[in-house]
Structure formats: structure tokens, C-alpha cells
Nucleic acid binder design. Sequence first.
DNA 1: CGGTGAAACGAAAACGTTTTCGATGAGAAT
DNA 2: ATTCTCATCGAAAACGTTTTCGTTTCACCG
Lengths: 342, 342
Amino acid sequence: MKPVTLKQIAETLNMSVSTVSKALKDYPDVSKKTKRLVKETVDLLNYKPNAFAVNLRTKESKTIGLIIPEVVHHFFSSVIKGIIARAEKKGYLVIILQSNESYELEKKQIDLLLSKRVDGILISLANGTGNFKHLNDLISQDLPLVMFDKIAKIVNCSKVIINDRKAAYTATQHLIDTGCKRIAHFRGPLLPQNSIDRFLGYKKALTDNGLPYDPSLVYICECGDNSFEEGKESARKLLNDHTDVDGIFINTDMVAIGAITEFNKLGIKIPEDISVVGFSNWFMSSVISPTLTTINQPGYEMGKEAFKLLYKEIKNRKQNSPIKLKTIELETKLIKRGSTKN
Amino acid sequence: MKPVTLKQIAETLNMSVSTVSKALKDYPDVSKKTKRLVKETVDLLNYKPNAFAVNLRTKESKTIGLIIPEVVHHFFSSVIKGIIARAEKKGYLVIILQSNESYELEKKQIDLLLSKRVDGILISLANGTGNFKHLNDLISQDLPLVMFDKIAKIVNCSKVIINDRKAAYTATQHLIDTGCKRIAHFRGPLLPQNSIDRFLGYKKALTDNGLPYDPSLVYICECGDNSFEEGKESARKLLNDHTDVDGIFINTDMVAIGAITEFNKLGIKIPEDISVVGFSNWFMSSVISPTLTTINQPGYEMGKEAFKLLYKEIKNRKQNSPIKLKTIELETKLIKRGSTKN
DNA sequence: CGGTGAAACGAAAACGTTTTCGATGAGAAT
DNA sequence: ATTCTCATCGAAAACGTTTTCGTTTCACCG
């Protein structure tokens, strides 16, 4: 009933544990004959190496940790898929934890992963994270770490990101190019870098085009579980506060879809009265009516690249090669659809 | 630089490894004084037990495996969230693998998890899975296993499900109650049980109400990555094949939304010309226009319950208590919205 | 025939815990 | 003084690998 061990194979074959082990790993100092013999009985007895023992001996678990703010989210689940796919190919398993956008949880989860002795950690920061000691600790223990999407520029590790500022600039520029003069922005929370960058891109596009920046046109959304409702609410507020707005650049598609839904309900014509640009190219943006012009954010690729980076670092650390940190910037693209004029 | 071990603590405190270990686990045969001492230096040196050694010694990893057909999916990601939340509370981590609806991958992944020696496995079957040897093998090795959502009735393990047949019956009955006489069904693939059950519920509702069952009204969708397109296509086909259909019960919301989008485009009025009922109560079903009447499928709860069941089995196995298999049936509910008459 | 070298194998340490079982000593009971 | 009890501790085995470093065997050469 107990799982088969090397010892048992050695006994049935009348040889030593070491020879069996070496035979399985194709050591040069064991004859072809015994190698064949060993491999046969291994198949026969259905031997599987005890991962616990291997881990202990080799000091690695072939497992990485992934901390993500929210699992139920199209973009993040795409990232997860990319990571898992890539990791599996390289023989790594991935443990997923969800920070729920909470700094405290994030800290605890890093501790958890640390105590499980994962070989590396992938993380996308919680909105609430403004202190980076827990991450710097990882680095000083030189555990491979790469951040993606929601990063902290100040932390010294590899990263894979998009250029949020540039993408937001492009989005806003598109609104300007299609005739909008008074452009609002529904932004994300104050802390996370990409929310800041998107805001800055929006602002820069305005001033570069000689349009005044008006803070009263910027609305803050938490972009949490009820983004959709936030979109509806911000849309209502906007209409109440301003009558002359003819374009909005919105931090995420979900909020944008909320806003569009509300506009539809209130009889505001899109894009004739107000043009809307979203962010992330969520699947639904091509289904909603009108279809939503948005910025494509490549989640799956981001996951893949993030794992690739981490994998390299893990390998380098194993052979004590110097680790060169790298920041990969993925391409975004403006997807023009029905919510803006052309 | 190396992580602190029990031995080092023992040396700095001038006592034996065993005492230190026992002090940390509050054994009765070590004095309060040394317990205090040990705990102090543990904090001081920032000792973390080596999980690899603990695993090897205790023969458990405090880790479970989760195999899911598709991560980028609202329902499944909700399940994942429920599982992770519950698992974390009990000190378990979860390794996620994605079968991509492939039987072959599913088999490999079970092997992977087995070789990692997880303490238990949660699985929702791939559509392609028609052979259950890999699962029965798990059971005969008595590794705790619980299936959820996409299950195989024939496999002898705990399960958490919804009553697909009943839910489908309710959905179809609702169409009938609101005046539909000729009701089509967009069903899922042939293999998975819930797709079958939903079909059977649809059929039974028809015959119970004296309506004829017409196979030509049943359309098959793969319900994979391009469910939305499938919905559109099936909608077109349906209009082409039949002119008298006044209601459709659709296997999943995504397909339903595709169909609605197509109907909208073609000028078919919903629900006046055709009523539509979906399945799963995906978030978007309340956003689409018209809003979609659907069946609520509680993903998060399913995840929670599945883990709870698995946890019990793990505990029971540890103390060699007899394992009682259990099947939990979660409640579904008809959510009436704009795509059906009232 | 002693010496050399290669080929094939094994003994044993090490990884860091947990847990059993004895050992030790102090004080109480006899 | 002897036994007994308790409280407290430590030695050591065990978990199953991996890997280093010998050891053995035997062929071959000088």
C-alpha cells in the first residue's frame, strides 16, 4: 500500500540504493545493463520519486508562487493562464494566492510562500500597497521575484509591463483627433502606478494639444468588484456636473461599459454626444452596444513573459550566475470601435 | 546567508535539537522557561521551519491540486476564488492546473499532482473526458478527491454540483409559462454530464407540458473559447431552419449573449418575437440589452463547499477514520429579466 | 608478476525535521 | 539509604533522496 521507494527497487534487484538512483539519472558510472534493469522494474513497480525527499535534498521545489489582486477578472485570469501554460512546459507548478487588493494580505501571503520555499514569486501589486519592505526582503534573500502589470518602479526587480502613460496618451489623442474638445477621465485609485500613469498620459495629451487640464473632469473609481456600478454612477455625476463634455477616457473597460449602459439609459448618444474610450480590450467591449473603442492590454502574453523572466532568474541563481534585471514593455494597441467617431 | 535551522537555534541556546523542536510545538515535557527562551530566539533569528523537511517527515504537503478546464471563465474563476479563500483559512495552498478541456492533459496533470504528493485533488472534468481510470486510480490509492460542477456520476467520490436537470426544467418551464409554444435549445457538447442533464431537463419540461420534442430544434455548441460566435451562428441557423420558434433555452450565458447580439442585429425583437433564457447568471447577463433571464449558478459557494469536503476527507484519512462520501447539491435560482415576458 | 587504469558498484553522509524512548536528577515516600 | 515519582531533557532513528568518495574487479602492459 505504501508508495514504492528506491530502497525497495534496490532490494528486489539486489543492488544498492545509490546505483538505482544513479541509473535513473543516467550517470556514466553505471552499466547499460543495470540501467535497463532498473528502468524496467521502476516501470513495473510504478515507482515515483518522493518529491518531499527530492526537495529536501536539492533545495528546490519546482514550484513558484503567484500573488494576484483578484482572480475573477478577465485580464488577470488571462495572465494566470499564460503563466500556468508556460510554467507547466518547464516543469514548474504554480501556487496561486489572491491579495484582494489588501496590503496586509499580500504581506502574509509572501510569508506563506516563503515558508513553503517556492523557487520564485510572481506578483501584481494590490492597490493598497504603498510600502515595499516585504518585497525588498525577498530580494535581499535573493529569491527570484518579478512583478507584472501593477508594479512599483522603486523595487529593484525584473518587471513586465505595458506603457500605461503612452497608451493613455494614445487613447486621449484619439478622442482629440476625432473632434473632442472637452475630455473627462474616469481614473483608478490613487496609489497604483498604472492608474497614475494613465492619468498622466491623459493629462499630457491634453496639454500637448493645447487643451486645458481641468481637475473637475477627473473622477476616481475604485475599480473593484462593482466597477460596473461605479461606471454608471460616475456617468451620472459627470452629466450633473458638466454639460459640455464630449469625450471620456476611462481607466478600464468594465467601468466604461457601466458608463455606456447609463448613457444609453439616459438617452445620451454615443459617440455623437459623448465619445468613450476604455482600457484593456475586455472581451465584452466588442459585444456592448455601441462597441467600445479601447486599448488592447495583452494579458496572456504578459503572463508568459513574466514567467520566462522568472525562469531565467531561477536558473541563473542556481548556477550562481549574476542576475541581470530586465524590464519588458509589451505593446498596446488602440482598437477603434463604435464608441468614438472616425 | 543560509536559512536558520533548528540546529542553529539549539546551538546558540546550548540545548538539543529535540528540545527546541518540542518547545516550538508546545510539548508538555519541556519547561515554560525553555519554551520562552526558544520562542524568543526563534523570533530573533527569524527562523522558519524548512517545509521540505517537514513534508518529508510528516508525509503531507499542506497543498492541494486543482484541475480546471479553463481559467479564463467567469464561473470557473469564481470557483477558484472560493477554493483559495477557504483553503488559505485552513492553511492549505492550492496548485492550479488547466486541462484545456483535454482528457490527455487532464491525465498528465493528475500524474503531476500525484508526483508532487499533494494532499488531495479538486477537479472539474474536461469535456473530452469519457474514461475515468485516472480518477479511479486516485481513489484506489486513497488520495482524497472531490469533483465539482463537471462530474462523472460513475466515479465513486464526493461531489458538489447543482441539479442541472432541475434547473433546466425550471428555465424551460418559465418559457412555457410565459407563453412560448415552440422552444429551441442550444446545448453544450455531447459528453459532459451537465450538458446532458440540461438537455434532459429541457426535454422533460416540454413533454410534461404536452409539447412535442423536436430534435431539429436542438443545436450543439462547443462552449469553448468562441462561445459568443457560436451563439451568433446558432441564432442565424435557427432563423434559417425555423420560422415558428418563439423561445430558446441556451446552455450558457455567453452563447445566449451571442445569440441576443445577433437577434438584435437582425431586428428580431426579444422577448416579443423570441424569448431567451441563459444559464449561469454571468455578470454580463444583467448588462446586455435586453437583460438576460438566466439560472444563477453559485460558483464561489461551489468552490467553498468543494474545499470543505476535501478538507474533511484529508482529515479523516489522516486519522484513519472511515471516509463517508457525500454529494452536495447547491441551490440554483431562476433570475427573471428582460429577455422573457412576464 | 607487480603495477596501472578504467569500469562498475556501494557505503555513508547530508538535507532538516519529528517523535520515540531512555537518561538524568531532584525531591518525596518508604 | 533505598525506592519511586515527576519533571525535564537528549540521543537517535526515521523520512527518501542525491552525491561524494572509496572499493572492488579485471584487463592490460611493462
